[in-house]
Structure formats: C-alpha cells, structure tokens
C-alpha cells in the first residue's frame, strides 16, 4: 500500500490584516510519489496553501489558522519548521530572493550545515546533487552571475539537499525563458518518476506539465473546487472552461460538436501527440 504523504484536513487561513480568509476549509490527501498540479486564478490562495505544507503557515506568518496539515502522519502544528525542512523541500518563485550564499556549492551545502552534518558528508552529498542535476559547470560560480534558469536549478538542488520526500514548488518557471522552463519541468518529472519524490507544484502554464502530472487541484477564492485525476477534473463541470489548457480545451470543443468521447476513446488527450494520435485513429 502507498503511504499518505500529505493530509490536509479542513484547513482555513486568514492573513493578519486581511478582511477575508485566503483558504477556506480545504481538504485533500496526496499519496507518496504523486505529482500534483495546483491551479487557480490569480489570488485564489495557491501560494498560501503551499506555505501550509512546510509549516511557514502558521509558524512564520501571523494569522488565523484552522484545521490540520499532516506530513507523513505528523501534524505541522507539532513540529517546527527546521524539522519539516527535512520532509518538505520548498522552492520559491523568485530565484534571487531565496539564495543566501556566495557560491552555488555553498548554497547547496547550506541546509546540511544548518543540521550540523559533518563536513565530509556534506561534500559527498553536494557531489551527488551536482551530478544529479548536471551542475558541474556552475558549481563554484556566484549565484548572482548565473542565468535565471541556473539560479532556479540551484534553488532546487538546495531544496533537495536534505533528501526530503516531498518537493513543493511555487511558480518556479515564471521568470524563465521557455527552454529553461521546459528543462526544469523535465527535471521535476525525472525526480518524480526515478527518485520517487512526491511533487506538488503551483503553475499558471499548465500545458507543459500535463504529460507527467497525476492529479490536479483547482482552487477558487480559497476553496478547493475540484481535485482528482486530470481526466476527471477536465470533464468536471466545476472546472471553468476558461482555465482549460489548450489541447484538452480544443478536444472538448470538438467532442461537443461531433462527439469524440465515448465511442472509441474515453480519455481526453492532454498533449499535442496524444491529440494527433486520437484524431488519426478515428
């Protein structure tokens, strides 16, 4: 049986100065090894929800917090953020504002230093990560002199340093040029498939993640409207049509007109290749 990695139960949160709740009674579960897309209009509470996963909310941000978040059975209320850092790696949107060391290598070593890991172990762990993410060329460079994509890669490496089972990413490709963005997403897919990391990622450009995500959670005004398999979500009435990614949207429009679903196939194609194959088979 697969273990439950994240269990979010009835979570609400209101920022200190806000008039309304940013999260309202959100409940869902993520099994270990799943790849979850978190979608929603701007301001719907995605970043807020992600910050609940590693305890930044409620330990770091003041406000009214209700409900429980459990990471592998342990409530975030009962453990502190450093302990949670071992379970949950977090990567933020803005690469510049999350890097605090003078070389890429030291940035990766930073969490290990924080935990008092012996020096020789730090070195071997850094070696491992540099090899895994192909960062040999930038290892000794200053994080301020490398490209945005490389900075984001550094942040991911640092988030992986403590070998957390869960990786949480908040719009990490927003500032990147398209190819670097695709590179980062491909890497996340690999971490998920090969290294069995549970990944939960907030993204606006859903199109490029559809081929490897398992489930999608859709937030609207702080409420979880839909959660489930991509297929189920895209066919759900709760999911707004103007949020649909291009390919599924086109397919569903075709389906409405001439009825594609049902007779030969019951799945909605998610990528260009899948759509072309479906049309070709007809």
């Amino acid at each position: 049986m697969v273990e439950t990695a994240i269990k979010i139960d009835n979570v609400s949160f209101k920022y200190r100065n806000a008039d309304s709740f940013a999260l309202k009674r959100v409940t869902f579960e993520v099994a270990e090894g799943e790849f979850i897309l978190l979608a929603g209009f701007s301001g719907s509470g995605k970043s807020t929800l992600l910050k609940c996963l590693n305890g930044l909310i409620p330990h770091f941000h003041a406000g009214r917090f209700g409900g429980t978040v459990e990471i592998f059975g342990e409530s975030t209320l009962e453990s502190d953020t450093p302990q949670l850092a071992k379970q949950v790696g977090f990567v933020f949107q803005n690469p510049e504002n999350q890097i605090s060391n003078l070389t890429v290598e030291r940035e990766i070593a930073f969490p290990l230093e924080n935990f008092g890991v012996p020096k020789n172990e730090i070195i071997s762990r850094v070696d491992e990560l540099v090899a895994l993410l192909n960062m040999e060329e930038i290892r000794y460079r200053s994080p301020y002199s490398i490209s945005g994509g490389e900075q984001q890669l550094t942040a991911i490496a640092a988030a992986l340093a403590l070998d957390p089972k869960i990786l949480v990413l908040d719009e990490v490709t927003a500032h990147l040029s398209p190819r670097s963005a695709v590179h980062i997403l491909t890497l996340l897919n690999e971490l998920n498939k090969k290294h069995k990391k549970t990944i939960i990622i907030a993204e606006h450009r859903l199109d490029r993640c559809l081929n490897f995500a398992d489930k999608l959670a859709f937030l609207e005004k702080g409420q979880l409207k839909v959660f489930g398999d991509l297929q189920a979500v895209f066919q759900s009435k709760e999911f707004p049509t103007n949020m649909l990614p291009k390919i599924p949207s086109l397919f569903l429009k075709l389906d409405k007109k001439i009825g594609l679903l049902g007779d030969k196939t019951s799945t909605i194609p998610l990528t260009v290749d899948e759509l072309v194959a479906t049309l070709n088979n007809r």
Binding site: L56, T81, A85, F92, Q98, N114, K119, I122
Partner: peptide, 24 residues
C-alpha cells in the same frame, strides 16, 4: 519584501535546526 522572502527561504532550509552548525 526581499528580507521576508529570504527569511522564508532560509526557514525552509532548516535555519537554526541545531546549535552545533557545521561549515563546508
């Protein structure tokens, strides 16, 4: 804002996890 975000980031990387910090 920069210092807040930085604080969030180091918090998420296990800041102050132990008194006996090591150094690379």
């Amino acid at each position: 804002r920069r210092s807040w975000q930085l604080a969030e980031a180091i918090e998420s990387r296990g800041w102050n996890a132990t008194k006996n910090r090591t150094y690379l």
